[in-house]
Amino acid sequence: MKLTDFDIYSNLLKTKSGLVLTEDKVYLLESRLNPVAKKWGYNSLETMTIALQGVPDKNLVTDIVEAMTTNETSFFRDMRPFDMFKDHLLTYMKQARGSARRIRIWCAAASSGQEPYTLSMILKEAQAQYPGWTFEIVATDISHDILDQARAGLYSQFEVQRGLPIQLLMKYFTQVDGQKWQISDDIKKIIKYQYFNLLEPMTSLGTFDIIFCRNVLIYFNEETKGMVLDGMAKRLAPDGFLMLGGAETVMGLTKEFVTLPDHRGVYVLPNSPHLQKKVETPGAASPLGSGSATPAAPATSAFGLPPKANTTTNS
């Protein structure tokens, strides 16, 4: 794309959406706008660009802005929630579900699949510690098109470089036609993709140990946010966890969830065992046991479980 063409789009986006486009995003412009050009019957992006310089159709401008502002997702998006999942939530579930050996996870906005696949890869990497366990990820979305994309598990070179460590690319993807990367069936098989509208009754989905609902609520108004959260509370195991996006909260929206102290982005039910704090001891470790345990700490520690012995000596 020519630099002058780039300026036309970056100025348009700046005016219409406030989105600032830097020059290293040329590729994004091309991959997002080619489908728009096709939809509007232009034989190339260049032809559409020329048309834009006249008096463009208002709807064309809207389509361009929408194509460019659609929320981007990526593997290991924001990283921290997945560290939290691996280091804390999963570790807790390993003990708490030790007899059933089954963990059910709901990705409430599967989008093009990066989040469920990320979780599946984390579970696969940890597999050796979970002999005989069954993991199930129910991944839902309101768009049939995006679910088809997710099911296909086929990603561009750019997509597989966003947040995905090279070791995991080597392990769980194969290259197709030189430009695309296909995720392996092994990672796909624990995921069940299904169409679901978050505004509908959720009972049919069953009960989950962990719900990921990141960067979805931001699209709803306050009342709807509350409704969705109330519904999710009923689908969560009593000791389960809800993960929201970095810019989201339950505060002021529902009484069915509360923040898990010291764990940003993690929410639990009001009667959750994870909230049994060690109140008597000032300066005691946080509910998750991230601080140092004191001798006075009572019997419940991380996630309401007996504290792990801190001794590093002997057997």
Partner: peptide, 15 residues
């Protein structure tokens, strides 16, 4: 790590 060109700042930062 390994980056396949073309790259952008986000890819470099995340890698």
């Amino acid at each position: 790590e390994y980056i396949m060109k073309p790259f952008d700042s986000e890819i470099i930062e995340s890698k």
